[in-house]
Design a protein around this nucleic acid. Structure first.
Length: 519
RNA sequence: GCCGCUAUCGUCUAUCGGUUAGGACAACGGGUUUUCAUCCCGUAAAGCAGGGUUCGAUUCCCUGUAGCGGCACCA
């Protein structure tokens, strides 16, 4: 056990994707590794951007991929409240302290004036920055104007001289000239704090020992360091995580740029182990001596191996193919019983069930079809789990996501097969020729399979022998039988399939196929 | 525009001054397999540019270039 405390501090937009997961995963991993606490704090100080049920939707997404919290709005804890809009009095109190100590001041500049200021600075090719217009208003005057009801904000009085040096666990030393830092607004006109005041106050009050956030916060890190100094507090350690870029490497990963919501990732059938595995590998790698050559790690291994010191400084691109590879590997790793369990959970909860975020997430193009397939097959799967398990064992090595399963297993569950020309190899033989061949081969197969005895040698002998009689390439006849009995050009080994399906079904499919081919 | 951060195969990365620059995904070729997939073997593929420091730089420093991030009463 340790006193390490980490926090995830999302604003309640209700959206969670791989980038979000990657951002919060280190907290979870490190808390587990060191026996510390992972805390969830909701940063909802922007009242203009609230999403109904956003918090619940996000908690659901985190927990479904395995990121759990020890303290937070949903589980409580001793340093709450964990929602910033419930902490307004606290921020007010601390803002007042800064004013009292001369580290902050009231600013009465209108939004219009600030806008004009920025415009003219931009026009002069200067960095837009507050000009300190209200910085030197005397405290008495300012207080009188506030008492008078004049609209105002509270700004931080950042020193003009010298520089500020910050230390980051990932980036090392980061320094800025103080004159490049503006007097950040700490309390807004509506009485809500800005992020800058709220994080500092909350991280301190909540006893956070390591604050992990995205590099997009690196530029404002000095303001936060200075705030700790002004309060006379010991700052936590900071780690700024590099971003994940969209697949083009152009922009940071976001919903607009190629990021799928976690709800859809789970629905498609990515395993939570794989989501963790892939997202943590974006910008981090284990020590060479601990690295696995195939780059596959279980959550337990990640907990053991992860360390901030080895996080990269560069942004990584989102790579769907690698994600697929990792997911496929995790699926292959599972023993059959566990896989069956996971498939059932996935089908019921993720495909047929709903995520809270579905209420405001546009469904992906593939969702309706997957849902209808699962709705159709799930009852059949469940009606004979042993049969399902045997069928699934043949596809385990062939799928990349659980969503591939319903279509892959369809012929095990259908009584009637349907074909299109695409399902046959018609390059060497016409449909009629295929039908003729199947007609002859059917009784010969019946001869060997009628007792449900699937002897590989016999089967090969019969098929090869007949192909020779016809003067066909062996493969052409095997392929025709495959199309006839599974409805597709690629399938698991036929005999393995037949042993599960049973001869009657196989026979029926061949008969149906002959009719279809003759049409 | 200003400020900051970063820079190794197409992509994700290893390397803590001396290596034939290693691995993974993807690509390609081969083997196993009646198909597909799995599995195994192999091929191709990289240090942004220019200056320093050093006996020796991918590694340290500077400059340039490029990319990303920030520049809100958003987080």
């Amino acid at each position: 056990m340790s006193d390490f405390r980490y926090r995830a501090a999302p604003s309640p937009t209700g959206k969670v994707h791989v980038g979000t997961i990657r951002a919060y995963l280190p907290n979870y991993l490190l808390a587990k590794k060191y026996g510390g606490k992972n805390i969830l704090r909701i940063e909802d100080t922007d009242q203009t951007r609230l999403v109904p049920n956003g918090v619940e939707a996000m908690i659901e997404a985190y927990e479904e991929v395995g990121i759990t919290f020890d303290e937070g709005p949903h589980v409580g804890g001793k340093v709450g409240p964990y929602v910033q809009s419930d902490r307004l009095d606290i921020y007010k109190e601390y803002a007042q302290k800064l004013i009292d100590t001369g580290n902050a001041y009231y600013c009465f500049c209108s939004k219009e004036r600030l806008e004009e200021l920025r415009e003219s600075q931009r026009a002069n090719k200067q960095r837009p920055m507050y000009d300190g217009h209200c910085r030197d208003i005397s405290v008495e005057d300012a207080k009188a104007r506030v008492a008078n009801g004049e609209p105002h904000v509270v700004r931080m009085k950042f020193p003009k001289e010298g520089g500020t040096v910050c230390h980051d666990l990932i980036f090392g030393k980061v320094s800025v000239k103080n004159s490049d830092v503006e007097d950040q607004i700490l309390m807004k006109g509506d009485g809500f704090p800005t992020y800058h005041l709220a994080v500092v106050v909350d991280d301190h009050l909540m006893g956070i020992t390591t604050a992990i956030r995205g590099v997009d916060w690196l530029p404002s890190y000095p303001k936060h360091v200075k705030l700790y100094e002004m309060f006379g507090w010991e700052p936590p350690k900071f780690a700024h995580l590099p971003l994940i870029l969209n697949p083009d490497g152009r922009k940071k990963l976001s919903k607009r740029h190629g990021a799928f919501p976690v709800s859809q990732i789970l629905r498609k059938g990515y395993l939570k182990e794989a989501i963790m595995n892939y997202s943590i590998l974006c910008g981090w790698s284990p020590k060479p001596e601990d690295a696995h050559q195939d780059e596959i790690y279980t959550p337990e291994e990640l907990i053991q191996l992860f360390e901030l010191e080895r996080v990269h400084k560069t942004a990584a691109r989102y790579d769907q193919q690698k994600f697929d590879y990792i997911n496929a590997k995790h699926i292959r790793r599972l023993d059959l019983d566990t896989l069956v369990e996971k498939v059932m959970h996935w089908a019921k909860k993720y495909v047929l069930g709903t995520f809270i975020s579905d209420a405001y997430t546009e469904p992906a193009a593939w969702e309706p079809e997957l849902k209808s397939l699962v709705a159709k097959y799930l009852p059949k799967w469940e009606s004979d789990l042993e049969y399902f398990k045997r069928a699934l064992s043949l596809e385990k090595e062939r799928i990349t996501v659980l969503g591939d399963i319903p279509a892959a297993l369809d012929f095990f569950y259908e009584d009637t097969l349907t074909w299109t020309d695409e399902d046959w190899n018609l390059k060497n033989h016409s449909k009629n020729e295929l039908a003729d061949a199947l007609e002859v081969v059917l009784p010969r197969l019946e001869e060997i399979f009628k007792d449900e005895n699937y002897d590989h040698e016999e089967w090969e002998k019969v098929v090869r022998g007949y192909a020779d009689e016809l003067g066909w390439k062996h493969g052409d006849l095997f392929l025709a039988i495959r199309s006839a009995t599974t409805g597709r050009l690629q399938s698991p080994p036929l005999l393995d399939c037949y042993a599960i399906m049973g001869w009657n079904k196989v026979k029926r499919f061949i008969e149906q196929s002959i009719v279809w081919l003759r049409k």
